[in-house]
Design a protein around this nucleic acid. Structure first.
Lengths: 334, 334
DNA sequence: AGCCATTTTGCAACCGGTTGCAAAAATTTT
DNA sequence: AAAATTTTTGCAACCGGTTGCAAAATGGCT
């Protein structure tokens, strides 16, 4: 069917190796041979089969990308960046959509069968041991957006969620809020747990209690809205720290539908700073996670792990920052 | 490195073919041999290499998914469905992110090198000839969300955009609007062109002129907002048909920021019915495109093209419907 | 021109599977 | 129990590339 190296070799009147070498860089071919080969290849419409090459070189240029957050628009941004970044390096993503099925065995098996060169697990909700199972299967893996632990075996690229929780608490405290609630993401997500822990710590350090802590069923607008409705029907609060911008938008709409104004009656602090957070209907003040940096670094890291497997590979954490828009009151000056 | 078929064969004390046959269905292996092989495989942690298999069978189980709309959240829904649907059939998507570079040559080359079994081009903005170039390269291809033409060579799975334009016009006309504008997607997108053409046709048929036609620079919130601002500073209109929900949300925020109420001062009709369109902050009345049906059908179709290449393969168009929320006035009764 | 160092080239084995074919084994039939 | 039939098995060639090695070609130098 497709044109093969052998046909090109025959047409160009050279050996098969000569053709092969024309297409592997660093190989030794004379200018004359190269041009004969290229001419023949052009005429035949030849392009080398990566499948066959993979078999011989033991490199597929395929990177497994494992994700479970296909509901959250921020993942589209993540996804766009991953595909572009990989593309630029001549690599291709092979996607695994985890849906509910978070049994790692399936993904590991799948990606091993395709002999991916490496894997990026891109999720903030799964525990370190999930990513670990790729490592156990001898596949280079990095956990992007994952939970960092100083002696974790799988390198993590992400943020310090505990510290972000502290940052959130400080941001709200120094604006004088006194009835603060937390509306986290799913309780099982490691990111949620860490952020809430950091938040609690800073609040109690300031001698403040937290008015209410609850968790949205998932990372979605509707989960945020529903959780906020039930919160508002039980408690009265003046500020809410949300575990995610999407949840926060749902929560804001819940508050508004009860006639509350933002930030007059109630204030919101989100998390992530996705594209939509800047929309005028929300103009969300939020904690920005440097998504782009995390993605670039995680690709760099996994590539490095593939190329230099013996070296040690270190986790990288990036700083988060507060983005001020219109859902918080102005700072009270000291 | 990885465990190979040969090692399993040796351990199980059978030939390599026996091992191979154990893992290809429809092959003839005795129960006794099979269990010996499975035992050895389990002990060694063997799973067959799809790369090697592909080379021999000429099937990779890889489907190229070509897209250029990584900015629009609706694509995340599309993407989720594609990955899941393919996954269920034992196939994997190989993603190509077109970004600006819409020269098909690159994608064709890329996907041919990976010997994908088939390709789904999932975009409503590129012309039929883009998808055609895969066909010219002998790769089975379907164009999802593409422009349909009765004698198009590449099968299309999507909607009739012209008809949707008519539907939009009727929806607005029968509610009594008399200063109607169109705010389309990018002017170069085939979907935009067809919707606008249908819309115009129905309007002139009703003896109505269109107050303003303009196009957003791309399928984004900000493009919609900017275009709407310039529209409003030039004209006065009572309803706007937007080429996409995202554009529509931007347009709504532009109108609101000028103090207009919806649907009191101005009404909006969107297109797509993405998840966000139901959010309370927008509650968009919109034309629903049956995304799920389109995706399932396009996967079915491409699979069929791979399995029965000689058969003829027909395009499929689905119907769209109006979803009523809160951005249009109630119907004026006859 | 002749010698030596450097490139370039082709051969052949290999990557990890599949599969047509004929022989061997198991099963059925007489 | 032997013959005929069916099923299972192993051999070996093949899928489309890469690569170590030795031979051949090239180029530089005296």
């Amino acid at each position: 069917m497709a044109v093969t190296l052998k046909e090109v070799a025959e047409r160009a009147g050279v050996s098969r190796s000569a053709v092969s070498r024309t297409y592997t860089d660093g190989a030794s071919v004379s200018a004359k041979t190269r041009s004969k080969v290229e001419k023949a290849a052009r005429e035949l419409g030849y392009s080398p089969s990566l499948i066959a090459r993979s078999l011989a070189t033991n490199r597929t240029k395929l990177i497994g990308l494992v994700a479970n957050n296909f509901q959250n628009p921020i993942f589209l941004e993540v996804f766009d960046l991953y595909t572009q970044t990989l593309q630029e390096r001549g690599l291709r993503p092979l996607l695994v959509n985890l849906t509910q099925e978070t049994d790692p065995a399936y993904s590991v098996q799948m990606l091993k069968q395709y002999s991916v060169d490496g894997v990026v697990v891109a999720t903030s909700t799964l525990p370190p041991q999930f990513a670990k199972s790729f490592q156990d299967a001898k596949v280079p893996v990095v956990h992007a957006f994952g939970r960092y632990n100083p002696n974790s075996e799988v390198p993590v690229v992400g943020i310090n969620n505990h510290k972000c929780g502290i940052l959130a608490a400080e941001t709200l405290l120094c604006r004088g809020y006194r009835a603060i609630a937390v509306l986290g993401g799913p309780e099982t997500a490691t990111s949620t747990q860490d952020r809430v822990a950091g938040f609690k710590q800073r609040m109690s350090q300031a001698g403040q209690s937290i008015a209410d802590i609850r968790f949205a069923a998932d990372y979605s607008y509707y989960a945020g809205r529903d959780a906020m409705h039930s919160l508002l029907s039980e408690k009265s609060v003046d500020a809410v720290f949300c575990g995610d911008d999407l949840i926060c938008m749902g929560a804001m709409d819940a508050a508004r539908s009860r006639g509350m104004t933002i930030p007059g009656d109630i204030s919101f602090l989100g998390f992530n700073d996705m594209d939509m957070s800047g929309w005028e209907a929300y103009a969300l003040s939020t904690i920005r996670q440097p998504t782009r940096d995390i993605i670039l670094a995680s690709v760099d890291l996994v590539v490095d792990m593939v190329e230099r497997p013996d070296q040690s590979h270190e986790s990288r954490l990036f700083e988060c920052s507060v983005v001020e828009r219109k859902t918080l009151k102005a700072l009270v000056s000291a």
